[in-house]
Amino acid sequence: MRYTLLLHYAEMSPEELGAEMMAEGQRAFASYAATLHQAGVLISGEVLQPSANSTTLSTVDGQVRVQDGPYADTKEQLGGTFVIDVPDLDAAIGFARQAPPVAWGSVEIRPGAVHVVDGAWQPNQ
């Protein structure tokens, strides 16, 4: 079963974090990705650019509206994702507990409904 681990945490610039904290965070994420890879469960992972670089589309009065910058006005933003393939939710929780943002933000576990394999939609099982 595929689960996406959505990593939410406060956005900070490299200057706000400082070089030491930035390096520590990069090591933590690299170690976590290696753990998932070695366990054979990692499908993909991404650290996202700051939410200020996002573009959000929505429909307002029948017209598509394009909005630059973060859509959510919150302290924590979606900072990255990992897609894993594990037997069940308990296994997903076990890997999510190891994600670095558990210490400074939150990790949302969301099961996939369908995914694409060789161009065809497949149910998540």
Rank of each mutant, 00 (worst) to 15 (best):
I43N: 05
G69R: 10
T56F: 09
G25C: 05
I109F: 02
G119N: 02
A120G: 02
Q77D: 02
Y71F: 15
M22A: 08
G69V: 07
L57W: 05
E76P: 04
L89Q: 02
N124P: 04
W121E: 06
D68Y: 14
V41H: 09
M22L: 15
E16Y: 01
Q38W: 02
L7A: 13
V66Y: 02
A33T: 15
S13N: 00
S54K: 05
D73G: 15
Y32F: 14
Q67L: 11
E46G: 09
M21H: 13
A33L: 11
W121I: 13
L36A: 06
A72P: 05
R97W: 02
A34C: 03
G25E: 01
L5F: 07
D118E: 08
A91T: 04
A72C: 06
E76R: 05
L89E: 02
A99I: 00
G18I: 13
V83S: 12
D88T: 02
V117K: 13
D85N: 13
G25N: 04
E24R: 14
S31F: 01
S13T: 10
Y3F: 11
E46Y: 14
A52W: 03
L6W: 04
N124H: 09
I43C: 09
E11T: 12
V83Q: 07
T74F: 14
G69I: 14
V66Q: 08
D61T: 10
A92C: 01
S58Y: 09
V66T: 13
V116L: 12
V47Q: 15
E108R: 05
Q67F: 04
G79T: 01
T59E: 03
V60R: 11
K75G: 08
I93H: 01
M21E: 14
A34T: 05
Y3M: 06
I93A: 01
F82T: 14
L5M: 07
A72V: 12
L17S: 00
T4K: 08
I109T: 06
L48P: 05
L17A: 03
D88K: 00
V86G: 05
S13F: 00
H115I: 14
G119P: 04
R27H: 12
A10M: 12
V64A: 05
G69W: 13
A103L: 04
T81L: 07
D85E: 15
D88Q: 03
Y32I: 01
N124D: 11
L6E: 06
Q38A: 09
S31A: 07
L5N: 07
K75C: 00
P50M: 08
S51I: 04
A10V: 12
L78S: 08
P101Y: 01
K75R: 10
D85L: 10
A10S: 11
D61A: 07
Q122C: 08
Q38S: 11
S54A: 04
M21Y: 10
D118N: 07
F82H: 15
